[in-house]
Amino acid sequence: MAIALQELQMYKNFDELARDVLDLAKEILPDQLIYLTSFSDAQQIILKLSNYDTKILLTEGMMIDLSETVCDRIDFENKQPLVYEDIREQTCPSELRNTLESVNAKSYLGIPISLVDGERFGTLCAVHHEQSKFDQKSIALLQRIVRMFSYYLVLERFANRDSLTELYNRHYLSQIFEDHSESGGVVFFLDLDGFKKINDLHGHDTGDLVLKEVASKLEKFADEYNDAFAVRLGGDEFIVYFSHIFSEEEMSKRAEHLLDCLSTWNADYQLSTSIGIASYSEGSNNDLNTVLKNADVALYQAKTAGKNTYKFF
């Protein structure tokens, strides 16, 4: 589960620390353009540049298809840097040479940045418009900087993600709501029907596996909409949050689709989902606790209506 750019922007002091990382790297390789990137599932994002070098055609915020980047060729599994001191040498594959030449880079150093669990975050890179010499001491120092940066990423992720399901948590939801509350939005409050029986009959380990499967289905559902993300509040309670307001007809369509996504289970599990829906209008004085309470009231109505359905507040 890649760290989304929106999530990074919520990390405390991220911009300051990213700048410190680049400044330290610049002390080690003063002649190079240093840049920090992150990966999504399909793209590489240039997060920060040490400076603007008019000879190197890279800019902050640039997004590149991951399959077309040099950084995607780095050995993340073994945490090994990728080094080309002169891309005109035969050791540099022609397709990588073409990619680097397209931004006017003649040398490249890429250090992989991974989280503790091995998940790829992105890279710390150094490029120059002329050939360069990268000594092992400099590379080792950059790897130490990257390692410290990865520890920071993990700590911030713990603050924003649910430890069991890896979905976002209430802390992250509160931050996003605070930043987007004036634009209006919609909350789907979900509760699993029959989950307690699964825990009682099959044990909590099985219950945890079911929660993880629910999380996976919710994440796939949220990925279908560019304004949505999924949250685990705790236990078997989940939220799907939409950061824009839309019609009741569209809400019904999305709720029915979500119920369908959560309808297929192991035959041993008698499991369904109830959904309470609450929206809040643009420009009003909105409060997350109030919106969640409204959605919870609608959820109770869905439960009393026979479960496996949705109700509006």
Rank of each mutant, 00 (worst) to 15 (best):
W265G: 09
F14W: 06
D205T: 13
Y84C: 07
A126G: 14
D227C: 15
I28P: 01
L259A: 15
L258V: 02
E95F: 09
E166F: 13
S272H: 10
E16L: 09
H244R: 04
E249H: 06
G203K: 14
L22S: 09
S94T: 15
E16R: 13
A140H: 11
L259I: 03
P81N: 08
A295T: 11
Q143L: 14
N98C: 11
E224W: 04
F188N: 12
S138G: 14
I275M: 03
M148C: 10
C92A: 07
E27V: 15
K293E: 12
L96I: 02
N266P: 10
F312I: 13
S274C: 00
L8N: 00
E178A: 13
L209M: 13
A230N: 14
S163Q: 14
S174H: 04
E237T: 14
S150P: 06
L288V: 10
Y280N: 01
D20F: 14
L47R: 12
E95M: 09
E249W: 00
T290C: 01
A4F: 01
K133I: 15
A42C: 01
D86F: 13
T304N: 15
L211T: 14
S263T: 09
E130R: 13
D200P: 05
I64P: 12
T123P: 13
K311P: 01
V210S: 10
L164W: 00
S114E: 09
K12L: 11
Y300H: 08
I45G: 05
R161V: 04
Y280I: 04
L167V: 03
E256N: 12
Y225C: 07
D200E: 10
Y35S: 06
N78V: 08
S50C: 12
K197I: 08
R88C: 06
E224G: 06
K137S: 13
D179V: 02
A25Y: 03
D200S: 01
V21F: 15
Y151H: 12
T99C: 09
Q270F: 11
Q175G: 12
S216R: 14
A222R: 09
F134H: 07
D23I: 07
Y172L: 00
L96V: 03
V186Y: 09
K303S: 02
T37K: 02
Y300M: 03
K26I: 05
L115V: 11
Y172R: 03
I139V: 15
K12N: 07
F158Y: 15
Q44G: 10
I74V: 08
S252N: 11
E89P: 08
A305I: 07
Y152W: 02
G235S: 04
I74H: 14
S181F: 02
D65C: 00
S67A: 12
E282G: 01
N51T: 11
E182Q: 02
L17G: 06
Y300Q: 05
A4N: 12
G234D: 00
L141I: 10
I113E: 05
T54L: 07
V240M: 08
G306V: 12
K311A: 07
A228L: 04
L233N: 02
L82H: 05
F229T: 11
L100H: 05
N199R: 00
F121N: 05
K307Q: 13
E182N: 11
D179M: 10
